[in-house]
């Protein structure tokens, strides 16, 4: 009974907040609603028994990716009028993407329905005594280790690419060298001068 209540509450919040992401006038509110959507999706994962995935969703998407979104959106000076004008222009492309997503969802749903309620198994189900963190680890680091490493490598290349694109070597910029600062001796920094009265430092 509690599970059913939790499911309906979470599902309702997820749908409403997902709608609010695109309906909100203020882009910062949009991102905040996006965070709420992620969070409720994590809750749904927990209800499905996939608690490890749920936590990963929160750590990666809510804790890191959405923070950066929020960061960027807050700093952008968005012109709302201009934003609204572009809406109709992009409508056909948006509708196309939405249709494709709907079709994919329909395919999955019809496959699930044709299996008469039995879960669609893509591989052997893990033994029940294994926690799902362990189950994911066993598959990810054995059968799919190459794909996993490749995914990491792609992200790494993308990151280096972003750094290379923004890196500019400007000549004459003074940078802090911690080792040089700490390694400086008194003799290098202090010079004693014997100043004669009435003469000053020439």
């Amino acid at each position: 009974m509690l599970e059913a209540i939790a499911f309906y509450v979470l599902a309702a919040i997820a749908i409403v907040s997902a709608f609010a992401v695109i309906a909100a006038r203020n882009p910062v509110h949009s991102v905040l609603f996006l965070i709420l959507t992620f969070f409720t999706a994590a809750g749904l994962f927990v209800l499905l028994g996939a608690e490890f995935l749920a936590m990963l969703l929160i750590v990666v998407y809510v804790g890191a990716v959405a923070v950066l979104f929020l960061f960027v959106v807050m700093m952008l000076d968005v012109d709302f009028v201009e934003l609204k004008q572009g809406f109709l222009e992009y409508m056909p492309i948006g509708a196309l993407v939405a249709l494709a997503l709907l079709g994919e969802l329909g395919l999955v749903a019809s496959a699930a329905l044709s299996a008469n309620g039995a879960p669609i198994a893509l591989g052997p189900a893990p033994a029940p005594e294994i926690t799902n963190a362990e189950a994911i680890g066993r598959v990810l680091y054995t059968d799919y280790v190459l794909v996993f490493q490749l995914a990491g490598l792609i992200l790494f290349v993308a990151m280096i690419g972003a750094i290379v694109l923004t890196l500019r070597h400007r000549p004459g910029v003074r940078k802090q060298d911690i080792a040089a600062q700490v390694g400086r001796k008194r003799s290098e920094g202090v010079e004693l001068k014997d100043v004669k009265p009435g003469q000053g430092l020439g």
Binding site: A42, E51, F52, M55, I58, V59, M74, A133
Partner: peptide, 25 residues
């Protein structure tokens, strides 16, 4: 007594930044 207790803690502490960033904005 979650079997992913530490992941839960990590997830919650990664959310902690929102209070501050929302308050600041």
């Amino acid at each position: 007594d979650l079997n992913i207790g530490i992941m839960y803690l990590f997830a919650i502490s990664s959310l902690g930044v929102y209070g501050i960033i929302m308050g600041g904005w």
